[in-house]
Design a protein around this nucleic acid. Structure first.
Lengths: 270, 270
DNA sequence: GACGCGCGTCCCATCATATGAGAAGCTAAA
DNA sequence: TTTAGCTTCTCATATGATGGGACGCGCGTC
């Protein structure tokens, strides 16, 4: 396994011990007494006591009515801040780079907002013709592969909400123009596990996308590969889709959404 | 006087510093560099560096691509374990969902800690405008309905303890600003059995809350319904309060606080 | 009631530990 | 190339954590 612990050096005994206490309390089903903590971690009573008091002052642990210790709510607070400021973008970037290297086409990372998709990152292959997309820009869901990828795997009620909001603007002669046609297309997307935009947003541009699923297997974003139709041919789609699936799986693991690297296919659940 | 300041003593410098680092990163919108951290906390570069390396080893912080630091996912993990131990949240959820279905407004579940309330769960109606509250966040007791709901039903000596700690920050022009005014409000809350926050935290936001009582009839949490003042009108309050009371009664039963489903009204004991 | 036991709290002399000055690296911009 | 700003690393020092041990409390047993 690629070890992410480059240096075992850098030690602060007090911190290692304190975190061991938190770990222990986190593992334990029930609150633990001072003596139990001290014994489990081979700490002297007085040492354990001091740590617990300090941790309590920081609300990292708290005491139950009978004086036992358990994890405190400050952790809950910090934890929520951690994922909040945590952005998908930084995590996804290395995976996107690899994807671009593999496919030699442009990759996008996008989020769904209302009935539009917003591109939060874009990676281009070095020698490709520049695409005109701008990070931060948005497009309607119904004519983008990222939009369809997210929509297809959203729970029905949330998908319905988005569908209601779509105004079927026509971008090219191939743009999906009706709710019914879109429904059919989403079903197709679910079955094959990836979404395709075949010149529906822009003439000559073909894209393919898969959703990034969170721990609840809900799509939080989508990754796409886009390129000129003459290079991104129908025959190549399955192979590109495969790279995409590997890519989003990597992202999910890095986000902590999937416990291990192996897990089943990221999509194709329904 | 019997000091409630449990311990100003008990110090472990290393821990205080480490938690200061986590606080800082939690406050900051963007990831911070080593130099920024060291400067903000008046630590020496090398000290800050050592701490960050250790924190990183424990996955309490992580580094962005450009080497800056932000909170790590271990905190998210521990934070979730922290609330798991109160299984209040899990047990309450179905009841909250029903409440939201009935009222079509946002419901919150909150705990009291020190002189603040911490939101541990939030359920939003499907088509509501999203509220900005973040799970894990906290607010002062005196300007929230959940805070007042808990405070009003706490035994006098424990309530006094909390009251002493309140710093009457003003959030809107309606925020309760004095201890006396708050006392009157709490008395009113006790009499009618539910607490109201009438734009005291945020302009245009009205909330109503009732406490969740444990087996000893002591409040352990509170449930609130919040919505824009134009929808949550004064006329609707009694009806919403009724739904709330049913909701917390259900929670109490599920938690094993009340032997049967019928028991008397959850509140209105005093 | 007295005793023993387990547990949490507290104190303080000792020395292991964290500390921080500073040097060395690294990268990007001038 | 130099400079500036940042991170990484080393090491002698004394600060700050450590843990032995005393104390007190509550509980169950004799």
């Amino acid at each position: 396994m690629r070890d992410t612990t480059p240096q075992g050096t850098y030690k602060v005994q007090a911190l290692d011990r304190a975190f061991a206490v938190l770990d222990l309390l986190g593992e334990s089903e029930t609150p633990l007494g001072l003596a139990q903590v001290a014994a489990s971690l081979q700490l002297h009573k007085s040492t354990a006591h001091r740590f617990l008091m300090v941790l309590e002052r920081h609300r990292m642990v708290e005491r139950t009515a009978n004086g036992k210790f358990r994890l405190g709510l400050r952790l809950f607070d910090l934890g929520n801040r951690a994922i909040e400021q945590y952005d998908l973008r930084d995590r996804a970037q290395p995976h996107l780079r690899r994807l671009v290297a593999e496919t030699e086409e442009t990759a996008h990372l996008a989020l769904l907002e209302a009935a539009r998709v917003i591109y939060i990152d874009k990676i281009e292959p070095t020698r490709a013709v520049r695409m005109i997309t701008r990070i931060g820009a948005s497009n309607p869901v119904h004519c983008t592969s990222v939009g369809k990828a997210i929509l297809a795997f959203l729970p029905p009620e949330r998908a319905a909400e988005v569908l209601r909001r779509i105004r079927f603007e026509r971008m090219t002669h191939r743009t999906i123009a009706t709710l019914e046609a879109l429904r059919v297309e989403l079903e197709k997307t679910r079955r094959r596990g990836y979404a395709v935009d075949d010149e529906e947003l822009e003439e000559g541009l073909r894209c393919i996308a898969v959703p990034v699923l969170d721990a609840q297997r809900l799509p939080v974003a989508a990754v796409s590969v886009s390129g000129p139709s003459f290079r991104v041919t129908a025959a190549k789609l399955p192979s590109i889709a495969n790279h995409l699936l590997q890519c989003v799986r990597g992202i999910s693991v890095d986000m902590g959404y999937m416990p291990t690297g192996r897990g089943a296919r990221a999509v194709a659940s329904a």
